[in-house]
Design a protein around this nucleic acid. Structure first.
Lengths: 361, 361
DNA sequence: TTGTATGCGTTATCAG
DNA sequence: CTGATAACGCATACAA
């Protein structure tokens, strides 16, 4: 027998389909005995309701979707875990959907909204530059989380949670400068990046400028070819190339911890010492930075708190408690063993790690 | 206008709904002009077809689902990428679904099969011990991939692709032994693990036994508390504890590369030298093992080939080309800089890395 | 080439 | 408390 439906169950039990529906959906107005009888028949016949049909009819479904952009990032996993907990407690169903890098997330969102009768959407990652028209099609509230909003203007009107990538990037580069570094290489994303890569580079430039250090464009490395952005491999290859060119530098800022790991390895393979000859810093606050040898100084994003804020904000929007807001979190500079203070009048390397993080993935 | 449907478009264009449907689905028997007109109206009115309704009607949908067990593993990301490519070429739609650790993947599969009218399913990760009854409910072919089939018997009848965890684990522990190590600690999963953790431990035991080395149960570390299995943190904590107990050992086998990283860090924090005082090996072949300092010797799983084999096997099953098969791939031992040969009559450490991997995530 | 009518499997409505 | 019946939005057999 191909597929057992609600009708079959009704027939088997000698009741109407609506009674079966009531039994399944915990409706109050049903006799306990008939309910038991029906549930038993459902068990015995391995009946599984068809979700497509359900979604089509249902009006009171409580579902929220998280659209994750790009190949899964360990940081996002931690965020999703938090979001899951909150939605569960609030009795919402959570739909997790991955969106390809080359896919348009708003299109996916609109489709999903219809298909699953969503009440709200969280966009996680990527960057956001969509036509107002398209965004207006979304008839349910949404929150942009961990998304770099490059343009200041209209985009501010959408609810969002993030860190200030420029500011945090500035913070860590400035930290290097305070430790006496002037020739600071940077290992980033693609040259045409308009997203976080671009923002973090702005922070780098700003830090140098404000400290009256001439920017050497040769020390700015962009990913080329088909290397995966922010990957260890990319960090390695770019640093390797930089070292081969013989450009002089005393510190390196990698725009992700994974790239920082690759950069460190390249330096070590070239016989360099960290932090004695080269200081290295990363960005994100992933566990690999903490456990690397040496542990890597980085900017830790408060992912759990950001996730909590994101889902709370969305729930508030759904309940019309308040209008869209723009929440910006502070990153935290975590000192590892990868930076050396090279100012003449002060002491040597800083070897005391201040790491204390949750585990990624 | 709450939600524009196919009816609205039909009305706007002054045609029947079936004509609109035909226009959208590229049916051959339709006038090009009317088709253009309809497509334009669809654009202008931002009409997006409801997938739930589609799934309900459609009989010829070609969709395949990948059910990924547990929080996303970087290795799986690489596999999914391959599966995506093949399915795209073969004109199948790919549905990616994550399954919680505490969720039953077969239940999810059965639901999804009905909802999306699937033609086949790939189970990725986790371990598999389900009642025959439940599995019989699945009326479409499926392949178990990267899943440890602990029991030899009936399970062999299901299609599967994997490495032999016992054998590969044996291989790398035996490698340590060949390098003169006798006191080999192991950092694994939970004590009650019945999955790959258990299998890899079997390989460890077998290697020691066959080399007539007494097994010291004190050197076998199990994850306890709520540490995430296979995480860097778990690797660190277990190794830290082991070192604090003062148990003597010259080598350590971590059951995942991420744990190996944590283990290395713990050793280094205790002032130990790798590989001079402690040799460390991992398992998986992730990029972090390659880029760690020192790079870590490990067993590399041929993930891309396994993914290709998995989807090919599923497609063959769908086309009824052949019956279920059981494919086992060979792992490859990749030598890093983390193992030292301590046999008296031979040379020193092996410092030449043979790493050459694709990038994770 | 096009329109009409039917049904996919459920839930909501309304009358018993 | 329960059962018939009408939607939900779409695809398709069949008629035109």
């Amino acid at each position: 027998m191909g597929n057992v439906t609600i009708k079959d169950i009704a027939q088997i039990c000698g009741v109407g389909v609506s009674t079966v529906s009531r039994a399944m959906n915990n409706h109050p107005d049903i006799n306990q005995e008939t309910k038991d009888m029906i549930m038993q028949a459902i068990e015995q016949n391995n009946y599984v309701p068809n979700n497509s049909a359900r979604n089509l009819k249902r009006t009171d479904a409580k579902a929220i979707a998280v659209l994750v952009k790009g190949i899964s990032n360990p940081l996002f996993n931690r965020m999703i875990k938090v979001i899951e907990q909150v939605t569960q407690k609030e009795k919402y169903e959570l739909v997790l959907q991955h969106v390809d890098d080359n896919q348009d997330e708003v299109t996916v969102a609109i489709e999903l909204e219809k298909e699953k009768r969503l009440r709200g959407i969280i966009f996680l990652g990527g960057y956001f530059s969509h036509s107002e028209e398209k965004l207006r099609q979304m008839s349910i509230p949404f929150v942009l989380s961990t998304i770099s909003l490059v343009e200041e203007d209209e985009r501010q009107e959408y609810a969002s949670v993030s860190v200030d990538d420029i500011k945090e990037s500035y913070r860590i580069v400035n930290y290097l400068i305070q430790n006496g570094h002037k020739r600071i290489a940077v290992v980033g994303s693609r040259k045409d990046d308009e997203s976080i890569g671009w923002l973090r580079l702005q922070g780098y430039r700003k830090a140098l400028e404000q400290n009256h250090i001439q920017i050497d464009e040769d020390l700015i490395c962009y990913v080329n070819g088909n290397l995966a952005t922010y990957s260890m491999e990319a960090g390695y290859e770019m640093t390797d190339e930089l070292l081969k060119k013989g450009k002089e530098f005393t510190a390196l800022f990698a725009m992700s911890d994974r790239m920082a790991v690759g950069a460190c390895k390249a330096i070590l393979d070239h016989g360099g010492k960290i932090p004695d000859e080269y200081s290295v810093v990363g960005f994100d606050g992933m566990d690999v930075a903490q456990y690397y040898n040496p542990s890597i100084t980085t900017i830790q994003q408060p992912v759990e708190e950001m996730a909590e804020a994101t889902i709370r904000m969305l729930l508030d929007l759904i309940r019309k408690k308040h209008k869209s807001r723009h929440l910006v979190f502070e990153g935290q500079l975590i000192e590892g063993q990868s930076v050396r203070n090279i100012r003449e009048n002060e002491g040597g390397a800083n070897y005391e790690s201040k790491w204390n993080t949750a585990s990624d993935q």
